[in-house]
Amino acid sequence: MVADPSDAGQTGMTLMELRAVWGPSSLLAVAVGALIQDERGRVLLQRRGDDGLWSEPGGALDPGEDFLTGARRELIEETGLVCPDLHLMSLPDALQSGPELFHRYPNGHESYIVGMRAQGTLPASALNHAAPDDSGETLELRWFPLDDLPPLSNNANRLSMNVLRARVGLPPVPLTPWPAPPPLGEHLLKLRRKVGPRPLFSPGANVLVTDEHNRLLLLRHAGTGRWTLPGGGLEPGESFEACARRELLEETGLRAKRLEPLEMFAGPRYRFTYPHGDVVDNVSVLYRAHGVTGTLTPQDSEVLAAGWFGAGALPDGTELNGELIRVNVDLWKTLGP
């Protein structure tokens, strides 16, 4: 989904601005981690200023920012280093989401981290030129072997290290326990009541569902009157895949035996304005459904109609629900049956 030209001057809310109106209770924190390794396979970690423990460089995205831009910015801020080959990991290793990514900071703020991981390489000697900014976020930088890691700050860091450890045959670092996530409860709507129409990150997932004739399922959205894919927004503690499964079932009555993650979509291109004026910066994983079962039963409250469309009979781009859905549908057209 893309912003209307009139949205260009609207400023999104940073995580700290949201905190000012939301308080310390759980928020979805859209974030990126940068996994940098040297020529010996050691990983670059920072000792954090807030808890004194260790983590990969990274942090929350700025409003309208894409993940790779955010990873480069965070790396410079927290280390002073530039990594020429920094790139996003492939899915599913790149994805961060789920109840285990709960984190309570020393100041009491609670977050569920959702987002992506980037990776790159630097020579060990690069650390001689490190120059973190003066924010106090970074107390120390050091290279660590994957089989001799220091105390890590939270499960997001442990899971990142486990992605790297699995590649070299090391067992996973155990995760620390996490609380039961809050009940599902229209998280974004509750934020809206606090902040009004200003742009907010909207993490979520969409699903490509096809029938035996390789026709794509589209739903006419009750709020916009345009065609969209089954999908919707994450709730705190929910994984991208769990969100995709829940939204698929709620909106269509269908279930998928397997959901294949295809691509993450994020950045200013996917800003969307609803007819009532609310603006979202979409952060969306596109899944392809396999082994679909059930009877198509469109959700009364959100879906005006449902239809199966072949590649040559799709609605016009202006009839699709914004740039995100247009790009998702274009990607589907490149896939084989």
Rank of each mutant, 00 (worst) to 15 (best):
D4T: 14
D4A: 15
A8W: 08
Q10S: 12
L15M: 12
L15F: 09
E17G: 03
A20E: 15
W22A: 09
S25H: 10
S26I: 09
L27P: 03
A31F: 04
G33Y: 01
L35G: 02
E39F: 00
R42V: 00
V43A: 12
L44M: 04
L44Y: 00
L44V: 00
D50E: 15
D51F: 01
S55Y: 00
G64H: 05
T69V: 12
G70P: 02
R72M: 10
L75G: 10
E77C: 03
D85A: 07
L91M: 13
L91T: 06
Q96A: 12
G98A: 10
N107S: 12
H109C: 07
Y112F: 14
P123Y: 04
L139M: 12
W143C: 06
F144R: 02
F144M: 04
F144D: 03
D148M: 09
L152M: 10
N157V: 14
L159I: 12
M161H: 06
N162H: 00
P174A: 07
L175R: 01
T176K: 01
P177N: 01
P203K: 01
P203Q: 01
V209S: 05
L217C: 10
T228L: 05
F240E: 04
E247Q: 14
E251M: 11
E251R: 13
T252N: 01
G253F: 02
R258W: 09
L259H: 00
E263L: 13
A266P: 02
Y274C: 03
H276C: 07
H276V: 11
V283I: 12
V285A: 06
Y287T: 08
T293F: 01
G294R: 02
Q299V: 03
D300Q: 14
V303F: 02
G312N: 14
E319T: 01
L324N: 11
N328E: 15
V329N: 03
L331N: 03
W332H: 07
K333Q: 15
T334Q: 10
